[in-house]
């Protein structure tokens, strides 16, 4: 198969599947159709739950068997939570904790 044609088709497939998934709940339950109670319930509770899943997902690469044994993650998360508690400024908490993390993994982390 032609190279660019393949790339174009693959890009279209990824777009089609992703878009359909994102639009799924609107297609299935939109247009004035009465939304089932169970769906509304999931809608109310799913957001904090999925965010928690995403945090686990983000941290899944943490290595406990090589330096820093998860120390960089623990320190950066601690800094993030503490700063956000004190100042309620998302950007400050995120930038500072990311800087802490970068300094730690670049200077004391194991080589990739």
């Amino acid at each position: 198969m032609n190279d660019s044609l393949y790339l174009l088709l693959a890009t279209a497939v990824m777009f089609g599947v992703t878009y359909t998934l994102r639009g799924f709940s609107f297609m299935a339950f939109g247009n004035g159709r009465k939304t089932p109670e169970a769906i509304l319930y999931v809608g109310r509770v799913i957001s904090p739950a999925v965010i928690a899943v995403m945090i686990v997902y983000c941290l899944k690469g943490t290595s406990f068997h090589a330096p820093l044994y998860g120390g960089a993650e623990a320190a950066a998360i601690g800094v993030c939570i503490l700063l956000h508690r004190l100042f309620h400024n998302p950007l400050l908490s995120i930038a500072t904790s990311t800087a802490v993390y970068m300094v730690m993994v670049q200077n004391w982390g194991s080589l990739p």
Partner: peptide
């Protein structure tokens, strides 16, 4: 290296 921690921090 490590800059993607911003994503984790955002979710936190």
């Amino acid at each position: 290296k490590g800059i993607d921690f911003a994503m984790t921090a955002l979710f936190i």
